[in-house]
Each structure stands twice: as structure tokens, then as C-alpha cells.
Design a protein around this nucleic acid. Structure first.
Length: 477
DNA sequence: TGAAATGTTGGGGCG
DNA sequence: ACGCCCCAACATTTC
């Protein structure tokens, strides 16, 4: 009996429970359905679409080694498309791995009901998370809202199950239904702006595993300190691979454990700050599941009446990396060029938008969504609500990042700023994070004319900080 | 997963 | 020798 495996954000063969279950029972028809309308308010941005194109290509190649191929479809109703496909190839069963965004949950629930109503079997599995969001409860039986107790609770619950192997073999269905060519999905940009992204990333499982292996051998041990340094290769850069499910969190968790068993690092690997970051991702899904309105609405209700500012010019300067604050501009340009930004710099740039410019956190979340290759509704929402101070376990309202101090602390030699803001490259490190303080002669020497070759700061941070503190203090009363 | 303002301490210069 | 002041370094409080 043929089973349709409906691929979504699980673009891998290993540790793929839906594929595993299907291959164990007979012929497999792998399907990907493009249905952007079903993503509701959060259709994939352009960078994410670029990634998806290449990831689907890799997945198809991997499936070919199993004697299968990926059937590509475009539809405005995935459920109807699946029923049609099942009829065409005689499938009686459809399986997939769960998604956890509110719109996807609603859609999948309706599809499961309609498939069963049509007399088909339909089952879903967990490929994306160490724990299901509904399985983790605090002592009162409710969801956690603070990370540390959430994490402790998960640690105490024991290790997640080991990853499943890729199917050793899979039978092809009696007939292959027609498939669109990958190019017909129109995911690749028409104008060639993706070169920076292509240079920075290798979509697909093998790229994901290469990243993980490199990270485990070179950066895991120093991660607690070096993860905050955007000028070093101190992070795993797994986020887009995890986002598309080219690698799963169970695989990451147990790869760390296996490296520890080989003696690469100590016995406390479960409590490592790297796996804590993986748990932040889990925590984000936990929150999104239990508070599904948070992509739009602040979790802390009083923030609904915060006096955000309308400042299109400020927003545009921030988006284009022309605020005059080098660490902020470097981050925003890294985002634009590569579809990714170092997490420390996300916090700095986010704090600048929300607290210095007083622009709504949702405008930052939307821009990140459109630019990021790892645009995850759960993580993006958590990150922005955190930095704005209106979310779970959020930064206290008075916590305002000083872009100059953050730059000096986390990019001490200025290598990160010099890379992404090349017009400042010749400025001595002492002035690099505050070029407006440099003596005129130093600027001239470095070939910089403020306001011409590089913007003057669009605001005075000290003034902006006081303005934010006042607005936030009023909110408390 | 802040930063600034304010307070405290202790060494050293100096009358 | 002593008190006084300055100020850097560190700690605490406050936003």
C-alpha cells in the first residue's frame, strides 16, 4: 500500500519519523506542496525562498539514492491536492511531520479531518522538537513563562529519544504522478541578489552536518565565551538548517552526546550552553503554542498601549544599515547580504530599533522575517518580544543596550564592523565604534567624511535612552 | 542575554 | 607622622 509522505519543514531522510513509518509499510510517494496562501500572515520571505529552492533540490537528490523522487506541486488547498494525489497513485495513507505555527496547526488539523473523512489514513509525527509543546507543564499544570525553570524541567525529564536512521530502502509507487519542475515554483530570485547568501551557506542535510561536525570539533568547547563574539566563528550557524528540518534537534542533541562519549568534552554536556541555546528554540515553540497570538500581540498586555513612534525615515535607516552606529549597521548589512545575523548583534540592533528609535517591535520582527534564511515564527517572536521587554522572561524595561559599549565589548578589534561597514575599515580601533568622537584629522586620515561617506548618528543615544526609560516608566503606572 | 549613577575603599601625593 | 584630597577601582543601587 502506497503512503504519501508530505514534506514541509523536515527536508531530510534521517530521523524523519513520517518517512520512516511510510517506508516500513510499502511504496512511498514523497510530495512537497507549495501553498503560500496557507501561511496566512507569514509567507516565506525572499531569502527563505532562495534557501527552500536549494534545499528541495538536495532533498530530491537524496531521495533519488533511495530510488524515489520528490513530487512538486503548487496548490491553494493542500488538503484537496493530497486527496487528488492519493487517488491518482492509489495511496491509502498520508503521513507528515508536525508544524507548530498557529496557522499551520489550524490547517493541518482541518486537513487531517478531511483526509479521514475521505476514507484515507492520516498520521502526523514529531521531527522538529525535542519535546512536544503540550507535554511540558509546570507544577500548576500550565505552560512555563520563564526559561530557566523550563530548561531545568526538561533536563530532569531525561534525554530525548535517539534519532531514527534514514530508511535503508524504499519502494517506488506503481505510478509517478506529474511533478512541477523545481524552477516552476519560482522560488529563486529573478534578479541575482542572492550571491552573498549563496556564498555564506550550503543548504541541505550535508551542509547541515558539515556545520555541526565543524562546530563540535572547533567551537563547542569555547562556546560559552565565544558565542557572543560576532567577529569569531564561535556559533554553530545551524539555525537555517534546523528551520528547514535538514537536521533535527534530536540529531544535534545526540551528536553532542556522542562527541562527549568519545572524550571530546566533559560529562556535563547536557548542561552545556550550546544545548541550552537549543532549548531556547524549544522554549520559543512552547510559548508560541500556548500563546498563539504573540506574533502580533505583546504577551504582557500593558505593552498594547505603549506609545510606539511612527518614523519611516528611522525605520529605513535601520533597515539599510545607515544609522551611524557601526555595530548596528554592520549587523543590518550582514542580514541583508547573507540572510543571517549573529545573535548578539540581533539583540543590539533590536534594542536600537525598539528602545532608541521607539519603533514597534513588530516592525523589526517583520523586517527580520523578510530577510532571514532562518526565519522561524517561534524564535523570531520570542527574540523580538524579549528585546522589547514585553514577552516571556523578557529583558527588564530599563535594560537598554549601548551600541558603542556593546561594540567595544563584543567586537574588540573591530573586525566585524570592518567587514560589513568597509567605509570605516581604515579607522583606528579606538574610534571604530564611535566615529563621531574621532578627531577630524583621524577621520580624514581614514578617508571618512561623516555625513558623506558614512552617516552621522541619526540620534543621540543618551537622549534616546532617557526618552525610552520615561516612556517605559509611564507604562508601569 | 545592561548601563549609568552613586557609594565605598584604599593607595598615594602633598602640605 | 598625620590628615586631607584626589581618584581609580570596585561594589551597590537605580533606571
Amino acid at each position: 500500500m502506497t503512503t504519501i509522505v508530505w514534506f514541509r519543514r523536515d527536508l531530510r531522510l534521517q530521523d524523519n519519523p513520517a518517512l520512516h513509518a511510510a517506508a516500513a509499510r510499502g511504496p512511498v510517494l514523497p510530495v512537497y506542496i507549495q501553498a503560500p496562501e496557507e501561511e496566512a500572515e507569514w509567507p516565506a520571505g525572499a531569502a527563505e525562498q532562495w534557501w527552500l529552492h536549494h534545499s528541495l533540490q538536495r532533498l530530491d537528490e537524496d531521495l533519488e539514492r533511495l530510488g524515489l523522487r520528490l513530487c512538486l506541486r503548487r496548490a491553494d488547498d493542500s488538503g484537496r491536492e493530497l486527496i487528488e494525489l492519493a487517488a491518482r497513485c492509489g495511496a491509502r495513507r498520508i503521513v507528515w511531520n508536525r508544524r507548530y505555527e498557529p496557522a499551520a496547526i489550524r490547517r493541518d488539523r482541518a486537513i487531517k479531518a478531511s483526509l479521514r473523512g475521505a476514507g484515507l489514513e492520516a498520521d502526523s509525527y514529531n521531527a522538529a522538537l525535542l519535546r512536544e509543546p503540550w507535554d511540558v507543564k509546570n507544577k500548576a499544570g500550565g505552560p512555563f513563562q520563564v526559561f530557566t525553570p523550563y530548561w531545568r524541567h526538561c533536563l530532569a525529564a531525561g534525554d530525548p529519544p535517539p534519532p531514527l536512521p534514514a530508511p535503508a530502502q524504499a519502494a517506488a509507487p506503481p505510478e509517478w504522478p506529474a511533478s512541477l519542475a523545481l524552477d516552476a515554483l519560482g522560488l529563486e530570485p529573478r534578479i541575482d541578489w542572492a550571491r552573498g547568501i549563496a556564498a555564506a551557506w550550503t543548504p541541505g542535510c550535508r551542509g547541515a552536518w558539515r556545520r555541526l561536525d565543524t562546530f563540535l570539533t572547533t567551537a563547542f568547547e569555547g562556546y560559552a565565551d565565544r558565542r557572543n563574539r560576532p567577529d569569531l566563528a564561535g556559533t554553530s550557524r545551524l539555525s537555517p538548517h534546523l528551520h528547514f528540518g535538514e537536521i533535527g534537534p534530536r540529531e544535534v542533541f545526540h551528536a553532542v552526546g556522542a562527541a562527549a562519549a568519545r572524550g571530546q568534552f566533559g560529562a556535563a554536556w547536557r548542561q552545556s550552553s550550546f544545548l541550552a541555546e537549543l532549548s531556547w528554540r524549544e522554549f520559543a515553540y512552547h510559548l508560541l503554542y500556548h500563546f498563539p497570538e504573540t506574533p502580533q500581540e505583546p504577551l504582557r498586555a500593558e505593552f498594547a498601549r505603549f506609545p510606539w513612534v511612527d518614523d519611516p525615515q528611522g525605520l529605513s535607516a535601520w533597515q539599510r544599515g545607515r544609522t551611524g552606529f557601526p555595530i548596528v549597521d554592520a549587523g543590518m548589512r550582514e542580514l541583508w547580504a547573507t540572510g543571517w545575523m549573529h545573535n548578539r548583534v540581533r539583540m543590539i540592533a533590536g534594542s536600537f530599533l525598539v528602545k532608541d528609535l521607539l519603533l514597534p517591535w513588530t516592525s523589526g520582527a517583520r523586517w527580520f522575517w523578510d530577510c532571514l534564511v532562518d526565519a522561524d515564527l517561534a524564535s523570531n517572536t520570542l527574540g523580538w518580544q524579549w528585546v522589547a521587554g514585553c514577552g516571556a522572561d523578557a529583558a527588564p524595561y530599563f535594560r537598554v543596550f549601548n551600541p558603542t559599549l556593546q561594540g567595544r565589548k563584543f567586537d574588540p578589534d573591530g573586525a566585524y564592523v570592518r567587514r560589513w561597514v568597509p567605509e570605516l575599515a581604515a579607522l583606528p580601533t579606538a574610534w571604530l565604534h564611535a566615529p563621531w568622537e574621532a578627531p577630524a584629522g583621524v577621520l580624514t586620515e581614514a578617508g571618512i567624511e561623516l555625513g558623506v561617506t558614512y552617516p552621522r548618528p541619526i540620534l543621540d543615544h543618551d537622549t534616546a535612552r532617557h526618552r525610552a526609560l520615561e516612556a517605559l516608566a509611564r507604562l508601569k503606572n
